[in-house]
Nucleic acid binder design. Structure first.
Lengths: 166, 166
DNA sequence: TATTGTTATACTCTATAACTATA
DNA sequence: TATAGTTATAGAGTATAACAATA
């Protein structure tokens, strides 16, 4: 059997084509690099055309899929602190995309729901965004793309307990 | 053949266990969710013990693997703007971890190299960080972890051309 | 005139602290 | 006393603009 020489893998950084050297196996680094692409796609499709930032868009979509969810639950799901959620909800409400409603049994909580306009926007943007990502990530086959999504989801489940945010 | 009913997949957000609904297939969302875990690992291991932020650590490691690299090349590789690189290099130089050296043939450029101390630190931290990520991402098998790294690397290569940064 | 790098500055994002209302 | 949410504020992080030196 011939044994391969112990040369470092020739993985290179995007664009500048530097050696990734020790960074290659570090997941946090590869996440950031891949994030450059998805941020480009999001900004070009959602941010520039509508007045929705990443956190706002994600929050709106989660509200759409979880009618009546509370701000605290969303903060935990997104890994951010409650004050940020309050600001995002303010903006989304001002845009007429979701509603706040005090809880019946517990008047401290606020149940969030999308408006008809918010629901329609979410449905459209989610569809467009998925398509735009597939088009942009031409380096991945459809099967690889799907596997990447599932592996990331599985990785995210390793998140440690956090009281109300990161 | 029995056909599965078209129910939505039961994927749930980490911790809060909300329905991910439309966000599930969006790569940018899954990247952000997985990033919560890797940020926790990085902060606990590198940031809290040494005075290195994520960009500084990545830059130092790339310099280690590409001796003589210039600031402009690093900005392109990392997807950030040159002024940020200048600030990071300032700090790393002040910490005695790398050196600047004017180019012989072109005095505009500065060639960066790690000091002995910088090189030793990179070697140690990279090793520790890889180990810490593997330990933290207990939801992934070693094979899945390795595949995730490779798929992310492949995805990152889809990055569009950018003049000097994002 | 174009390019590298720096300085100064502004904007975005997210966190902490302090507060109100409710339980 | 503990919890949900808000307001006000501060700190990271990263961008743009203007500049200096060199090609």
């Amino acid at each position: 059997m011939t044994k391969k020489p112990p040369v470092a893998a020739p993985e290179r950084t995007p664009y500048a084509r530097l050696s990734e050297a020790g960074m290659h196996p570090i997941l946090g680094y590869q996440l950031a690099q891949a994030g450059v692409v998805t941020t480009q796609v999001f900004d070009g499709l959602v941010r520039s055309r509508h007045e929705l930032r990443r956190g706002e868009f994600t929050l709106l979509t989660l509200v759409h899929g979880n009618p009546g969810v509370t701000a605290r639950q969303l903060a935990r799901a997104l890994g951010v602190k409650p004050p940020n959620v309050a600001l995002w909800v303010d903006r989304l409400q001002a845009l007429g995309l979701l509603t706040r409603e005090r809880g019946d049994s517990d008047a401290r909580v606020q149940h969030l729901r999308t408006t008809a306009r918010g629901a329609a926007l979410v449905d459209r943007l989610v569809k467009d965004l998925v398509a735009a990502e597939r088009a942009a990530l031409s380096t991945l086959s459809p099967a690889e793309h799907a596997m990447l999504v599932e592996l990331l989801h599985k990785a995210a489940l390793a998140r440690g307990r956090m009281d109300s945010g990161p």
